[in-house]
């Protein structure tokens, strides 16, 4: 049965874009927590911790998101956890996000001047206090533009979880295309919805970047 592409189909796409955003949100929160640990492990003085974090980051950055997705989807199944695809997808995207965010944040932590560490150590702050009051507040400013930039990548990469039939925007586009047979219209609209989500984020990232550069020069 062929249906024309109408308001109902359009609303279905918009509704599915909500899932895209939700997946992005979950992955950025879970991935972000993991990434903070990774970033701190990467700059820690414990050689084992440091190397484990380095290995994790380079392995995840060296394989496609698709493989991370399949490994967590089938890996969890093999471990006897029969979880719904949405969970596997969230796990995969969180792992993916953690590796890239971890690397970005490591860079941000390392770009805080050495003297800041020394000054705060000489004020008898503990390691925890050094991070909390001196290092992290400065790194956040540096890390913000690339983090927002990475979130754009994350939104786009949620499209991959359509393969384990999570109905997010791309999967919805496929489904609508299957009943309307209007691939041109459907996928252009899907692309425009992604554009509407990602473009403001890209602009924000660039704006923040410009601002932080002024800040650093001044």
């Amino acid at each position: 049965m062929i249906r024309p592409f109408g308001m109902q189909e359009f609303l279905f796409l918009i509704e599915s874009a909500g899932w895209t955003l939700l997946l992005t949100l979950i992955a950025s929160i879970l991935g972000g927590v993991l990434a903070l640990g990774l970033a701190i492990a990467r700059v820690s003085v414990h050689i084992v911790l440091k190397e484990v974090a380095r290995l994790y980051i380079s392995v995840i950055q060296g394989i496609p998101v698709l493989m991370v997705l399949f490994l967590s989807y089938y890996g969890l199944a093999q471990a006897g956890l029969d979880l719904p695809p949405v969970i596997a997808a969230s796990v995969a995207l969180s792992i993916y996000a953690s590796a890239y965010l971890g690397d970005i944040w490591r860079g941000a932590i390392q770009s805080v001047h050495r003297q800041q560490w020394e000054a705060s150590a000489s004020l008898a702050l503990t390691r925890m206090q050094q991070y909390r009051y001196v290092i992290l507040p400065q790194s956040v400013k540096i890390a913000l533009p690339p983090t927002v930039g990475f979130l754009v990548q994350l939104v786009k990469n949620t499209s991959i979880v359509s393969i384990v039939s999570v109905i997010e925007l791309t999967r919805a586009g496929q489904l609508v295309n299957n009943v309307t047979f209007e691939p041109f219209k459907v996928f252009i609209i899907v692309a425009l919805i992604y554009l509407a989500i990602c473009y403001p984020m890209s602009r924000a990232s660039r704006y923040l970047e410009g601002k932080s550069r002024v800040y650093r020069n001044g």
Partner: peptide, 18 residues
């Protein structure tokens, strides 16, 4: 800007299906 702000997968679908 258009290419950087849309997923590769959707670009692929447009090329292959549309």
């Amino acid at each position: 800007e258009t290419i950087r702000n849309t997923p590769l997968l959707v670009q692929l679908y447009i090329i292959f299906f549309a």
